[in-house]
Design a binder for these strands. Structure first.
Length: 283
DNA sequence: TATATTGTTACACC
DNA sequence: TGGTGTAACAATAT
């Protein structure tokens, strides 16, 4: 599940790998992954050079030198894999290959996605601002200007929301998904069902610290590979071994040896330790 | 075959 | 009006 650390990892890698490269050919194997037909996509992209890669929330922004940008969302199972040289022909070697970009010079970028939830959209750079405005993303989780005070203000706006859902909602904070919300709440010792408005200042501060600490470490380890995720070099991330609650239902809590529980909150699974993450607000 | 999966969004409700 | 909660949707592996 690519969340902020995984997308950030790919962003950093692609900035080293494909900036300055020019599209020589484009193949779209699954038409629905893009907002343009293969021909139209090719018309726009071929001949363009990549200027820089950035990220907003879980979306990769690949800036081109012709006034267009490519927006890539990996959703659940997407992968963007760079290969220094194209293997055989122009055929996908992965059965879940949805699109392929071949650069002048022989390298290539593959977009794989078994679930086909991800997308690669072409958007004129001048329309980007509007694109973000429509989505109403909250502050970037790791933005240096995002401090505990600002987080507290967002809590005030949505007091009824369960904290688990609050953390995942991109309109509150941008970049956190199911994995890291579970881990942040364990770090903070807060039960996922607690309402945002019931949290004390100390708890909000702890959530803030956990968010910064966990996401930063996860980037350092190139993300979490619990299922399909791979970085741009086709390698697994190394944060999975650091997970304390996510995906550990039925296993023992690393802190107190209690059994980790899993519940559903708004259709999403939430893993937590019933002992370490208390249900009640502190007095 | 039915079910679980998650990020996002559409929609009904108060 | 807009916050809130629920459900739908994407498509696949198991």
């Amino acid at each position: 599940m690519p969340e902020l650390p995984e997308v950030e990892t790919i962003k950093r890698q692609l900035n080293r790998l494909i900036v300055g490269k020019e599209f020589g050919e484009v193949k779209i194997f699954s038409p629905k992954v893009s907002n343009f037909s293969e021909n139209k996509f090719r018309e726009i992209a071929v001949g363009a050079e990549i200027i820089k890669i950035s990220r907003r929330a879980k979306i990769l922004i690949i800036g081109l030198d012709n006034g267009w940008t490519m927006l890539v969302h990996l959703k659940m199972t997407g992968q963007l894999i760079y290969r220094p040289s194209a293997r055989n022909s122009r055929l996908p070697e992965n059965k879940h290959a949805r699109a392929a970009f071949y650069f002048i010079g022989g390298s290539e970028l593959l977009f794989n996605d078994s679930r086909k939830f991800g997308y690669i959209k072409l958007l004129k750079a001048k329309n980007l601002e509007n694109f973000w405005a429509e989505r109403k993303f909250g502050p970037e989780a790791l933005d240096k200007k995002f401090d505990a005070g600002k987080l507290k203000k967002i809590f005030v706006v949505r007091p009824k929301m369960k904290i688990k859902q609050f953390l995942i909602d991109q309109k509150n904070i941008a970049g956190i998904g199911n994995i890291y919300s579970d881990e942040i709440l364990f770090f903070a010792g807060v039960h996922p069902c607690r309402q945002a408005g019931s949290l004390s200042s100390a708890e909000i501060k702890k959530i803030f610290q956990g968010m910064k600490k966990i996401l930063t470490l996860a980037i350092k380890l190139r993300g979490t590979s619990s299922s399909d995720y791979m970085d741009a070099l086709g390698r697994k991330g190394r944060f999975a071994s650091r997970l304390k609650v996510y995906g550990r239902e039925g296993e023992k809590c690393v802190k107190c040896r209690e059994t980790i529980k899993r519940i559903r909150i708004n259709g999403r699974s939430a893993c937590f330790c019933p002992t370490c993450q208390t249900d009640a607000a502190p007095i």
